[in-house]
């Protein structure tokens, strides 16, 4: 779209006014284009090159030279396939939980509280309030809360919900919980933005046409809020799939809960196996692109005006 903005007029040529406007469009777009070239396209190309590098024979650890080593990909996938699956599994779970938790919240703030704009702003502030504290700090706090000496575990043990030798930290539950918790604002805000603008008269029309509240919700409210659902789930799913904080040993996870992000981190920073790390990054990106592409197509948001 950005390109058609200035390429279409040049094709119709002739008119100087249009030409001038397209020139202005180009100037306005230039910083963005430069930024993307410099900080996205260039690193991406570099990453792709890295992913094909080969070790320097008799070289130091972490020393690689340019090459075309396809094996890096098969090695990476072969070695880390469970982590890739786990990453997407956790990310999908966290996205679903975040949606289920956020939707009623966004609906309440955006629709039910319309008469009280002040309360609306206050509640929205509460939704984003956690951002005022560092993400790492909050995740560490959860680790404390869920630790064996923390307030939760002894209670659950007393209630026999948790076996006597059970833990919460280091389990998939803790990781998915952490992901859900950390990404809820990213889910809530786009949902709120859509629901807040939604005309409640559509809901009245649904009720008038014999649809029960539940049917109206399914047939009218959900489809109308689809743009918010799609952007919220993408904003949650994409970063959650690549996340390595929640699942890391130092936070809520353990070696049993490692996600692909942890593998990338370890290869880049600890093992200094840059080609494998780069290959994993590319694989992660490709899978996300494919999943998101299918999802957006299936969700059919382009139909929604």
């Amino acid at each position: 779209m950005a390109f058609t903005a200035f390429s279409t007029p040049t094709s119709t040529a002739a008119e100087p006014a249009v030409r001038k406007r397209s020139w202005i469009a180009l100037v306005l777009l230039l910083p963005g284009i430069l930024y993307l070239l410099l900080f996205f396209i260039a690193p991406l190309i570099s990453l792709i090159f890295t992913s094909f590098q080969q070790p320097v024979i008799d070289g130091d650890i972490g020393q690689y030279s340019a090459g075309f080593q396809w094996q890096n990909y098969t090695d990476a996938v072969g070695q880390y396939l469970p982590l890739i699956f786990r990453a997407f599994g956790y990310a999908i779970l966290a996205t679903v939980f975040a949606l289920v938790i956020s939707y009623p919240m966004a609906y309440f703030i955006g629709v039910k509280m319309r008469r009280w704009p002040l309360a609306q702003s206050l509640l929205l502030t509460l939704v984003i309030a956690p951002f005022f504290i560092s993400f790492l700090l909050r995740t560490l706090a959860w680790k404390q809360i869920f630790s064996d000496e923390g307030p939760v575990v002894p209670v659950l043990k007393a209630l026999s919900v948790l076996p006597t030798d059970g833990h919460i930290t280091g389990t998939p539950f803790a990781v998915v919980f952490g992901l859900t918790y950390n990404f809820i604002p990213f889910m809530t805000l786009p949902l709120y933005a859509v629901l807040e603008r939604m005309d409640v008269r559509y809901i009245e029309a649904g009720a008038d046409l014999y649809a029960s509240p539940w049917t109206t919700f399914r047939k009218v409210t959900i489809p109308l809020s689809m743009p918010g659902i799609v952007s919220g789930t993408l904003l949650t799913f994409i970063p959650a799939a690549g996340d390595y904080i929640n699942a890391s040993n130092d936070f809520l996870g353990s070696s049993q809960t490692s996600m692909v992000g942890n593998a990338i981190e370890a290869n880049f920073l600890v093992l200094q196996n840059y080609p494998i790390a780069a290959a994993l990054s590319i694989v992660l990106m490709a899978v996300i692109l494919i999943i998101v592409g299918i999802y957006v197509r299936r969700a059919g948001t382009e139909d929604l005006i």
Binding site: D199, R201, Y202, E204, A205, G206, D208, L209, V220, P223, L224, M226, D303, L304, I305
Partner: peptide, 13 residues
């Protein structure tokens, strides 16, 4: 009962 709404309220989707 059915209503013809002043704003129509036709479902846009």
């Amino acid at each position: 009962v059915n209503t013809v709404f002043q704003s129509y309220a036709l479902f846009p989707h």
